[in-house]
Design a protein around this nucleic acid. Structure first.
Length: 264
DNA sequence: ATGCCGTCCTTTGGACGA
């Protein structure tokens, strides 16, 4: 078999793996990503569809949780080699939001960053505290001599160019100044926001809520991100969003978001 | 201005999501 010239890395918030498994399998078959970070499994470990994914050609590691949260990493023809689950300093944190593994020669940190609404309040405080813990750990990842990507649902609208109507979302936790500053501090460590890097000033969204036909009208948010460390960033070749998945019946409110990097 | 819809189970309403 000819050696692949590119690797496709993707993140997809499925909003319930049980309900979304048919969508996930159809998307995997059509787009053939090499590495996938999943969020919002909303299922316990025992309910993860490991056999169906194996049948589809994907190895997986996952950390579930009843009802909420839950993350997984998939590797095409490969079982991810886990390096960590849960962020350092979160021994009392019961929420399944962080999983990290080596897949196809890349260290992949899959995250489901807390939403933080309503703000102000304890959930917003938890979001800021989680972002601080992420930043501390990310500092050790960014300087790795290996390629590293942080991929997932960040629940951060980085700028007003990343939301169809900033005024409508002004009070939302996803675009509060403290949240944007925390995301900015993360980028300042040396991470590349790959979708923005590839698309420049162009509008591109990864999430559309279920109301007012927002998906059909492309009134969305850019909140799913893939951040690359300085070793991986020069290999970035392409980036996009598989919006067709969001336009299907019974879709998740997020669409798969991906990049292609040169194989080393 | 708004969870208007969707998913889960703590199930037939409430909690949560963004």
């Amino acid at each position: 078999m000819a050696r692949k010239k590119r690797l496709k890395l993707a993140t997809y918030n499925v909003n319930g793996i049980g309900t979304r498994l048919p969508h996930l399998l159809e998307w995997l078959a059509r787009e053939r990503p090499d590495v996938v970070a999943l969020q919002e499994l909303k299922a316990i470990d025992e309910a993860f569809p490991v056999a169906a994914l194996e049948e589809a050609g994907y190895g997986a590691i996952w950390q579930g949780q009843r009802s909420w949260n839950g993350i997984a990493l998939l590797g095409r023809d490969s079982v991810p080699v886990e390096s960590r689950r849960g962020l350092p300093g979160g021994d009392s944190d019961e929420q399944s939001r962080y999983i990290e593994a080596a897949v196809h020669g890349i260290l992949v940190a899959g995250i489901y960053l807390p939403n933080g609404n309503p703000q102000p309040g304890p959930k917003f405080d938890y979001k800021l505290e989680w972002m601080a813990r992420l930043a501390r750990h990310a500092r050790t990842l960014v300087e790795q001599p290996h390629p590293v990507v942080i991929a997932g649902d960040f629940n951060v609208i980085p700028t007003d160019e990343d939301v169809y109507d900033p005024k409508a979302w002004r009070k939302d936790a996803l675009m509060q100044p403290q949240v944007r500053e925390a995301f900015g501090r993360l980028l300042a460590q040396g991470w590349t926001d790959s979708l923005r890097q590839v698309h420049g000033d162009q509008r591109i969204y990864t999430f559309w809520d279920y109301f007012r036909q927002h998906a059909e009208r492309d009134r969305g948010l850019r909140i799913d991100h893939l951040l690359l460390n300085p070793v991986l960033a020069p290999r970035l070749q392409a980036a996009g969003v598989d919006r067709w998945v969001r336009l299907q019946d019974k879709a998740s409110d997020h669409a798969p978001t991906w990049i292609e990097v040169a194989a080393d």
